[in-house]
């Protein structure tokens, strides 16, 4: 295995719901190599989204360690974490989550507003990202003027535009028809294979998971299976 970019050791996450403690993750240990396309699978409540959130720095573990690129994300302050996410993580959500009042171009440009790039540099990056997902001709369309598959591709362009280390996708095909889902999964596969991006995808769908090179199965907060797919 290549040098792991994500190193998870004995990761535990306990949520408090009223008087009850719910263990979402229970001592998960996992290494993810750079450039890997990994699918996190499991039934609802298995902890796969929680694990993804902790890796992406939008949630904190109760115990254990999560190192991404050598940085313990759990130890960063909220501000440091936000800055870290901006430069190291690209998000793809099930419901696309594009800003409805911004065009495809502006949605993709959004994370770059937090960087020191000039207007012309931002233009260059955004055009490159939208070209990569095949939407260079839809730049000035608002989300409502795009199909679901196109919206998700814009979301992927937005995730890519800052050239992050990790791309995390939470059920990226959950709201798409079969054809669009196939396009999105192919795109994520290409990003991993050709651009060397580490893609971590949460999915219920075995067909979607089949596009990943590795599948990790979680149940009741524990890792029950870790299977690499041979091509």
């Amino acid at each position: 295995m290549a040098t792991p970019i994500v190193q998870i050791r004995e990761l535990t996450k306990i949520f408090r719901q009223g008087e009850i403690n719910v263990t979402a993750l229970d001592g998960v240990t996992l290494d993810i190599a750079g450039g890997e396309f990994l699918a996190l699978m499991g039934p609802s409540g298995s902890g796969k989204s929680t694990l993804l959130h902790i890796i992406a720095g939008i949630d904190r573990p109760t115990a254990g360690e999560c190192l991404v690129g050598g940085i313990d994300v759990g130890s960063l302050s909220e501000t440091e974490l936000a800055e870290w996410r901006n430069s190291h993580v690209g998000f793809v959500f099930q419901t696309f989550n594009l800003i409805p009042v911004l065009t495809a171009f502006e949605n993709v440009e959004l994370p770059l507003l937090l960087t020191n790039l000039s207007g012309s540099e931002r233009l260059e990056h955004v055009e490159a990202a939208l070209s990569l997902v095949g939407l260079a001709d839809r730049m000035n369309h608002l989300p409502r003027q795009l199909s679901g598959g196109q919206e998700q591709r814009v979301a992927i362009a937005r995730a890519l535009v800052t050239d992050p280390t990790l791309i995390v996708a939470d059920e990226p095909t959950g709201n798409l028809d079969a054809h669009s889902a196939q396009e999105v999964l192919n795109l994520l596969g290409t990003l991993s294979r050709d651009a060397g991006k580490t893609v971590i995808m949460v999915t219920h769908d075995p067909k979607a998971a089949a596009h990943a090179r590795r599948t990790v199965q979680l149940e009741k907060g524990e890792m029950v299976r870790d299977r690499a797919v041979q091509y």
Binding site: I58, A82, E83
Partner: peptide, 13 residues
Amino acid sequence: REISVLKALGFTG
């Protein structure tokens, strides 16, 4: 929803 997304994208508090 959008504010959560913005925070995920790196917007600080």
